[in-house]
């Protein structure tokens, strides 16, 4: 006899799924916003070799881009308490997401800043703008615009990677799925539904990033 699909249990767990989904969205929004912020700071520090940030960022970026996310998460959640820094699950999860995305977006945004035509920087300098004003008003927006698709993909990748946070019992979507599956042993249906939720969420994030990007691109008055 073939396997009998039965999705009927899903409404019973709607609340739990919603909780997991919200948790994942929360991790992604916090990780995305702060991570990109860190990336902007990192990108300009690296580009101008600001002391001491330029070098610190270099080691940080290399470290986080060349190690597994799960190990980074464990180091933060299980390792840091040995140094007296105790974080609860959601704090550790957000910190890991932020640091991971921050490292990748540093490199992505740096590439965008590097692509600024030198003539535009010279024009800004000749108008007596300071370096920071040139960065803020002349370089940043076109740079972000240029790398926005790459940055959006990285946010989606990080969102998908957040499923790993189930390993420290952060109650995100995968954690919830694992829990439900252990209750009803409906592995296929549970993970199929979870897959669909991740897929939908990924599409939603891409769309949201597109809208935010359009806002960056949109031609609007200064500040």
């Amino acid at each position: 006899m073939a396997y009998q699909f039965d999705f009927a249990f899903i409404p019973d767990y709607a609340g739990m799924f919603a909780h997991g989904l919200a948790y994942t969205v929360g991790l992604t929004v916090a990780g995305g916003a702060i991570g990109i912020g860190i990336g902007i700071g990192g990108a300009i520090s690296r580009l101008w070799n600001l002391r001491p940030f330029g070098n610190l960022y270099r080691y940080y970026v290399e470290l986080f881009r060349n190690t597994p996310f799960l190990v980074q998460l464990f180091l933060i959640f299980f390792g840091l308490p040995s140094l007296g820094i105790k974080l609860v699950e959601w704090q550790a999860a957000i910190l890991a997401m932020v640091l991971n995305l921050g490292a990748y977006s540093t490199e992505i945004i740096r590439a965008g800043l590097q692509a600024t035509p030198p003539g535009q920087i010279e024009a800004a300098e000749s108008l007596a703008l300071t370096r920071w004003q040139t960065f803020l008003y002349v370089m940043l927006r076109p740079a972000l615009r240029k790398v926005w698709p790459a940055l959006s993909s990285q946010v989606v990748i990080t969102m998908l990677g957040s499923s790993v946070c189930s390993q420290i019992s952060a109650e995100e979507l995968t954690f919830v799925a694992n829990f439900i599956q252990s209750r009803n042993f409906r592995a296929f249906e549970t993970y199929f539904f979870t897959t669909a939720m991740y897929f939908g969420l990924a599409l939603l994030i891409r769309q949201a990033m597109r809208l935010i990007g359009r806002h960056l691109i949109v031609r609007r008055p200064l500040s």
């Binding site: 535009q120 010279e122 024009a123 800004a124 000749s126 008003y137 615009r145 200064l222």
Partner: peptide, 30 residues
């Protein structure tokens, strides 16, 4: 530089700013 203006061969306008914003940027921030 506040005493000297410069115009370049390649114009070097800021593409993300409108014409008015291009002209107003330095008076605003400098």
């Amino acid at each position: 530089r506040q005493k000297i203006g410069m115009v370049f061969q390649q114009f070097n306008l800021f593409p993300h700013l409108s014409v008015g914003q291009n002209v107003m940027l330095a008076p605003q921030v400098v």
